[in-house]
Design a protein around this nucleic acid. Structure first.
Lengths: 312, 312
DNA sequence: CTTTCTTATACTCCATATGAGCATAAATCC
DNA sequence: GGATTTATGCTCATATGGAGTATAAGAAAG
């Protein structure tokens, strides 16, 4: 195998950057969208950019006027069916997850639960699962021909959605979406995009191309990451109460955590320090305001905010 | 922002696939190399390939005649300095981690500790750290000009290499390499590649371009992954003793684990099942042979082999 | 054939982490 | 001033993980 790089043969190859930009807006975990919520922001990777990461930063800040905090690469796609039909053009899509402190109430931010209604378990399991998804998934499993296929299909569903005694695992965002895709329960499967169709309430808002799959990838990555890296703080204001921090974590994870244990965890890991100020804006007894101890970033690369989950 | 994809402007863009192919050969965690150990196998992404992953599988199996087990994307690079000097060609490098059961004693497999001698702590901290790396890192830190920079540099070194009371963290493979790179302690920094220079014993074997950085990324990813996903089994023969399994984990992690606790962990997670056969090839009391319970892949996507680490 | 060595395997012990809940404190709202 | 709400401190039971002791079963040495 030669070490020299090689010019690709047929057709030009274009490189696109796609961003999953996350902020917590009014307690909702939100993602920046364009085209009236139908797509994630994306743009060509310009030859002028020094690197992918800087390319992304430059144009996100150009487009959104937001300072971009934490950035991490998600995945690179180049599946053939991503190309525009009839075109010989091959598109490489490199997706990124970015965290930012949303400030002004700008347009384009949408709760990610608009796109994944079944992912929000903060008020218990969403009714849409038992009411609509389970029956349809069961039908799909049953339609799995002969032999072991129906059982196999249903086992996957039960595992992904926490049915039949299995516990809900909030990190399986992508698996759940791909299951629904496979079962043809999302409109992307049949190329009809967006719209306010009746099905939106069941299958969530659709997106262009595979943007919703990319979004699912980003959510899954973030839900996993908050458990072992102090990334939540990238989404917080400089000073915050512990309950505000907890609400942010809960918004991302889509489930509630035990209040006292959450405080214990944060404090014993020394992730925060008191500012000396308290606020009464929260109602009830005034809460101390904390700030993130930036020192921990250097101290412990592996430090993290584990979730003290409430057992089902 | 337009949703349509865009043709890049100046120069063509080529896409390269780079593989970090891992196997455990005679107890050594090994990686498949080409060019006499100077480079990782890589090749152009052909337009004919259906997707990146299949593109990689096809050509790895073409080149190595190895069945490729677990495959996962590592990272996509496009830094400007990766391009050949003088060329306007832009190269996107998409790297993958692949696990395989090496069988015949073929050429090209090399212990990854040839490239990262400081990463093998199975017999305690390698002397090269205290003998050679620490003094040079200290010099580099000291040379950090005025103010807080020297302290800051040294803090990073101490954290990455587990000095000054910090614990050794085997997952920080990439951080360590990048620190050595920054301190100009690896030959890649000055573009002189390969060779059996005296420095190899200290800074490890070098590689072409940023291949060693990609290898470091792969090792780090794998060391993290074995703790929460049952991927070690991809590297094992169909039947194995628990000690063989433990040795494989230790080879990858570069550190020893507590034998009894390792067994407890594996068994209580029901990752394996007895074959009913025992072997006396191990010396001492015959050991039961086990096989991986493939069912767990379906049962628990989040199942894993956590390391019962020995405390320093 | 007994001793010795080596590896396999079964248990015990203890410190810490984590899920869960009770109790009290300090504000606001009527 | 009592009800309500949020903040915060503390206890308890259990699970988990690091570490060590003890015993079993084979091969090799003598």
């Amino acid at each position: 195998m030669p070490e020299t790089t090689t010019v690709s043969l047929a057709g030009a190859i274009a490189v696109d950057l796609i961003a999953v930009l996350v902020a917590v807006v009014n307690g909702s975990p939100s993602v920046l969208t364009v085209q009236n919520g139908d797509a994630l922001p994306s743009g060509p990777f310009e030859d002028a950019h020094r690197s992918l990461q800087t390319g992304l930063r430059i144009w996100v800040e150009e487009q959104t006027h937001h300072p971009l905090g934490y950035v991490e690469q998600l995945y690179t796609f180049a599946d053939r069916d991503r190309s525009a039909a009839g075109s010989s053009q091959r598109v490489i899509s490199i997706s990124y997850l970015g965290l930012t402190r949303e400030t002004r109430g700008e347009v384009g931010w949408r709760s990610w639960y608009d796109y994944f209604p079944w992912e929000d378990h903060r008020d218990g399991p969403p009714v849409v699962i038992a009411e609509h998804l389970v029956p349809r998934l069961r039908d799909w499993a049953q339609a799995g021909g002969t032999a072991a296929l129906p059982e196999e299909r249903w086992r996957r569903c039960a595992f992904a959605f926490g049915l039949d005694g299995a516990a809900w695992n909030e990190e399986l965002v992508l698996q759940r979406y791909e299951l629904l895709y496979e079962a043809a329960l999302v409109p992307e499967r049949v190329r009809e995009t967006g719209g306010q169709s009746d099905a939106t309430r069941i299958s969530g808002r659709a997106m262009t191309g595979d943007h919703r799959r990319i979004l699912a990838t980003g959510i899954a990555r973030l839900r996993a990451k908050i458990k072992y890296r102090p990334v939540v703080f990238e989404l917080m204001q400089p000073a915050f109460t512990l309950l505000q921090l907890q609400r942010a974590v809960e918004a991302l994870a889509g489930r509630l955590v035990h209040k006292q244990n959450f405080r214990r965890l944060i404090e014993q890991q020394e992730l925060v320090e008191e500012t000396g100020v308290t606020t009464s804006d929260t109602g009830g007894r005034p809460a101390k305001l904390f700030r993130f101890r930036h020192a921990v970033l250097a101290e412990r690369a592996a430090a993290g905010t584990k979730l003290p989950l409430t057992r089902a």
